[in-house]
């Protein structure tokens, strides 16, 4: 009895799972083809905050964290075509959508595009809309453009405890050198295809100094050598200058060259032993019999004499 019930339950469970899956798939597939239905009032809605270079910058940071995975950087064609995500930097998109409409889309969501209504504050949502519209040349941004500061980075490494110290300074218009305080510094390890970030949330203190304890588990080259790169996260404000240092803090890599062992893909010198034995024993065995027979043929003449 119990068994029977169990089987039935299992069946119902599977059934339920399949139905759910089908439901999700159907919603998903229909939603991909759905159309935006933006109310008219959204078009002319007036932002409660002002679009300045500063708020656009705020929006950029949020956009990069939340939107870039599907939409990509606007105007670069990095949008995910498989789910019909739009490249928000194109002219066609910008011409059709006012800042209010961008806000509406972002706020409501549609199909694969989720709603961000409760995720951010009203202000933050407008900042994101500003950033998106900043790719429209006709969109007005007030205030002053952010000026890139004249900064300088100095890096020193300490082998004893594997720490990196970065000192960041700013030179103002008058030539005075001050500490760049509270600036976010990112640390990277150089890899073949780009730089791998290894740090998180490291900021300079009031003296412009940031200290980073290097992790123990980063693979280096054969000798454990690693190239560390430090730079400002906000390159627009602090500049793109970076500092590099080479240390031997990485895990030394030991990998065997697969061409140096006996293998099917090796050279003839490195033929696998089993193959060598098989080939030689079969070939020599057969040829031994051949030679035996050939030798016996020469003995026909004297056989029985």
């Amino acid at each position: 009895m119990i068994n029977h019930k169990n089987i039935t339950m299992k069946y119902i469970n599977i059934n339920r799972k399949v139905t759910t899956l089908l439901f999700i798939l159907m919603t998903f597939s229909t939603s991909l083809n759905a159309q935006w239905n933006i109310p008219k009032e959204a078009k002319n809605s007036i932002p409660p905050v002002e679009a300045t270079y500063k708020t656009v910058e705020e929006g950029k940071i949020l956009f990069q964290k939340n939107c870039i995975s599907c939409h990509g950087i606007p105007g670069k064609g990095e949008n995910n075509k498989a789910i019909n995500a739009t490249d928000l930097g194109t002219e066609s998109y910008q011409l059709k959508h006012s800042v209010g409409e961008v806000f509406y889309q972002f706020n409501t969501g549609m199909g694969a595009m989720p709603s961000f209504k409760n995720r951010f504050s009203e202000e933050e949502k407008w900042h994101i809309a500003f950033y998106v519209k900043s790719f429209d040349d006709n969109f007005k941004i007030s205030g002053e453009k952010i000026k890139t500061l004249n900064t300088n980075l100095k890096m020193s490494t300490d082998d004893s405890d594997k720490t990196i110290k970065v000192t960041a300074t700013v030179t103002d218009n008058n030539g005075n050198i001050n500490a760049a305080a509270n600036a976010k510094i990112n640390f990277y390890v150089k890899r073949i295809f780009g730089n791998m970030p290894v740090s998180e949330d490291i900021k300079t203190n009031e003296d412009g100094i940031a200290v980073f304890k290097f992790p123990d588990d980063i693979p280096g080259d054969k000798e454990g050598k690693i190239k560390i790169i430090a730079g400002f996260e906000d390159a627009d404000r602090y500049g793109k200058n970076t500092e590099t240092a080479e240390v031997t803090w990485g895990k030394a890599l030991h990998f065997e060259n697969p061409n140096l062992k006996r293998a099917l893909w090796g050279s003839n010198k490195r033929v696998p032993v089993w193959l060598l034995i098989t080939y030689l024993s079969v070939t020599l065995g057969v040829w031994a019999v051949i030679f035996y027979v050939a030798f016996q043929i020469t003995r026909i003449k004297n056989a029985g004499k």
């Binding site: 020469t298 026909i300 003449k301 004297n302 056989a303 029985g304 004499k305």
Partner: peptide, 11 residues
């Protein structure tokens, strides 16, 4: 090969 039909040769 010097075959002369001897039984040993046949064998």
């Amino acid at each position: 090969f010097g075959f002369a039909g001897r039984p040993e040769q046949y064998a």
